[in-house]
């Protein structure tokens, strides 16, 4: 049996703040097969981003292991090479043109400039950025900036994409457009994606499976499969299987929550 593309087991994390110890993650485990789209959803401040940084190799876990294609990568120099990471803000550098922003990861790896530009350039049309190669980021709309940031992520051709609330800062309409677009493009390219979000519908629209986390210290409350073919368009929102999955996710979120879920409460 082939091992899953991504296998995360027994992640624990504590922060020491003065004489207080804050437990953030408690025995978190998840996995994603090649080409699978898995979302991690949880209440605000539950430690989603910490979990992501640990998986990406940016932070050390107190305990636990990350395996990629059966190999243990935790604590190895090769750790970051398994992942392409897209943070919450687009972080396009204002002093670089869009093309030079998207080739940043390749430049760091020492890919020759012409080759890097060719690789990124081949994706511009599919990412709706054709004609903006030599533009500066400030001339782009919010949705375009986010697509440029995603292009910068995928062009690195790492086995697994880590997307940390990529649409969180967008207006509702643009966000929906981009969700539909990402659904299509991720199936088309067969990406293996781990997405952090607090938007239940976003997770349902995009994912094969949804990992629901409890409030801090976060552990896995439930893993819910979305039994609908991908890519999905917005029409599935009315589908019976979709609504059932949505109910399941909301129930799992509420079960782990100390306060009633009523849609209000503090934002991020």
């Amino acid at each position: 049996m082939t091992p899953p593309r991504l296998l995360v087991r027994g992640i624990h994390k504590r922060f020491v703040d003065g004489d207080r110890t804050i437990e953030v993650l408690r025995d978190v485990a998840l996995e994603a097969g090649a080409g699978e789209f898995v979302s991690v959803i949880g209440p605000s401040g539950c430690g989603k981003s910490t979990l992501f940084n640990i998986i990406a190799g940016l932070e050390d876990a107190g305990a636990g292991a990350v395996h990629v294609d059966g190999d243990l990568v935790t604590g190895r120099a090769a750790h970051t090479e398994a992942f392409a990471y897209m943070p919450q803000q687009d972080l396009l550098f204002p002093w670089r043109r869009v093309m030079d922003n998207t080739t940043l990861g390749l430049e760091i790896r020492g890919v020759p400039r012409a080759a890097a530009r060719a690789r990124a350039g081949a994706l511009f049309a599919r990412f709706g950025l054709a004609g903006f190669e030599e533009a500066y980021p400030y001339t782009l709309s919010g949705g375009m900036r986010q697509r440029a940031a995603l292009l910068r992520t995928v062009v690195q051709e790492r086995p697994i994409l880590l997307l940390d609330e990529p649409f969180g800062a967008l207006d509702a309409l643009t966000r929906m457009e981009l969700q539909e677009w990402l659904a299509a493009v991720s199936s088309e390219f067969g990406w293996t994606v781990l997405l952090v979000t607090h938007d239940v519908r976003e997770a349902l629209l995009l994912s094969d499976r949804i990992v629901v986390l409890t409030p801090r210290p976060a552990s896995v409350a439930a893993t819910i499969a979305v039994p609908l073919p991908r890519p999905r368009a917005l029409e599935v929102l009315a589908d019976r299987a979709f609504i059932e999955a949505e109910t399941g996710v909301l129930r799992a979120l509420r079960a782990g929550s100390a306060v009633p879920v009523d849609g209000s409460g503090g934002g991020r």
């Binding site: 940084n53 990406a56 190799g57 940016l58 970051t80 090479e81 992942f83 392409a84 990471y85 943070p87 919450q88 803000q89 972080l91 550098f93 002093w95 940043l104 990861g105 430049e107 760091i108 790896r109 690195q156």
Partner: peptide, 26 residues
Amino acid sequence: ERAASNLLRSMGASRWQVFRLVRLPG
């Protein structure tokens, strides 16, 4: 921004590369 340094580190950048590519132009 710390997030910008993290992004570059996730791409495998050395400390010098982080300096040259983000801190200096920024």
